[in-house]
Design a protein around this nucleic acid. Sequence first.
DNA 1: TGAAGTGTATTAAGAGAATTAATACACTTA
DNA 2: TAAGTGTATTAATTCTCTTAATACACTTCA
Lengths: 131, 131
Amino acid sequence: MILLDYRDKRPLYEQVVEKLEHLIVCGALKPDSKMPSVRALAMELSINPNTIQRAYALLEQSGFLYTIVGRGNFVAPEESWQSGKQLALKEELAEAFEHALSAGMDKESIIAILDSVRQKMKKEAANDSDT
Amino acid sequence: MILLDYRDKRPLYEQVVEKLEHLIVCGALKPDSKMPSVRALAMELSINPNTIQRAYALLEQSGFLYTIVGRGNFVAPEESWQSGKQLALKEELAEAFEHALSAGMDKESIIAILDSVRQKMKKEAANDSDT
DNA sequence: TGAAGTGTATTAAGAGAATTAATACACTTA
DNA sequence: TAAGTGTATTAATTCTCTTAATACACTTCA
């Protein structure tokens, strides 16, 4: 199903997450289809089941899988991943806001930056439609 | 001059950076005034001089201090730090905004998140003053 | 009902990075 | 030249992260 790269310095579970996420987004793994069991995939890759468990847990957290205890893990419907991305975006925003506010920046200044980004993106969209 | 918190799980040099940065931004340490020597501050805090050295190096990198070898470290003029810090914050915000907007999030949703972060920080500030 | 398959929780071992310390060097000033 | 300053190098230590070992709990189905 996937192949690990031991020259890659990143942790194994991260590689597993990345590759499975890719397979799901590309449609190679269809929504509601059953994933290999934690133990089966661990066996196939010759690694510990907990490592797969961790990868599956992360994929579930970001909405790519859903779990039925005792039955297995399944690919989530497309709507789930998109809401997961929304969550990630919110966290990114919250982090930036926290930094800005604790540095003393006020709400108006932050909104001014937001508006400037919106205008910049509008212009770029207009230019794109020209080409 | 500053006080370390050994219950704080962050590294010592990070605490030193944070507290000195705060003293500079608040005006408690005036531009061009001499900072305590690496050894003196280390002695005062009962930690290794290299830890202070590391903190000073980071503060110099972000424009809060300047160094004259053999003479000491000095507080940088306001222009040096304000520009660098503000710029970094603006870039972080702009990046997050760009991601959010291109994913289809609208202005109102973004401002709602900003408000929730502001409220959260107010609460935390209130709790800190209790202890 | 019980065995086999599934996910889950807990704990510990191992590796690696990050932090801190020890020490020696180099520059400036008086 | 001595005392005070920052700097560089290396080593010891601490800590976090990753992975593994193991036991537990739930579902299904023969």
